[in-house]
Amino acid sequence: MDEQIRFHTIAVLVENEPGVLARVVGLFSGRGYNIESLTVAEVDHKENLSRITLVTSGNVMVIEQIKAQLDRLVPVHSVKDLTLEGPHVAAELAMVKVAGTGDKRVEALRIADIFEATVQDTTLESFVFRLHGQSAKIDQFIGLMKPLGLVDVCRTGVVAMARGKEGI
């Protein structure tokens, strides 16, 4: 059997009601699944729907279980495995605070420019950069900032959507 661990991005459309996130998170902790990242926000006020984007990991059988378990939660409307169902676009937003002076400060700004990060806040000794894109790109940016005075990182986690004309 295929035991290889793989990462899957899963989109879940849920009823926007109290406790729904606790159900999803409790499912993952209770059954020992991994959450690599999770984002959630209301997407349709009138229909009272929220959308969760989850990145999780496991072998084929575990990933299948995760989807089946999610789908049987009562307030879940639909579950889509974006990794499995074809090409999709994914992005993440990050804010990165770097403190320093002199050459390091100049270098940080130069690299931020290359990554198309924008400066959200600045003092004479610090920047807060904002950048978005693939998670790997953000990882790389953070890696480069480390020796340049990295102070703080905050990331939204991945949001993702299938390519093409079909909705969830």
Partner: peptide, 11 residues
């Protein structure tokens, strides 16, 4: 009737 019962322990 429960899809999560299928392929849970045994393929």
């Amino acid at each position: 009737i429960d899809p999560s019962s299928i392929n849970k322990n045994v393929r």
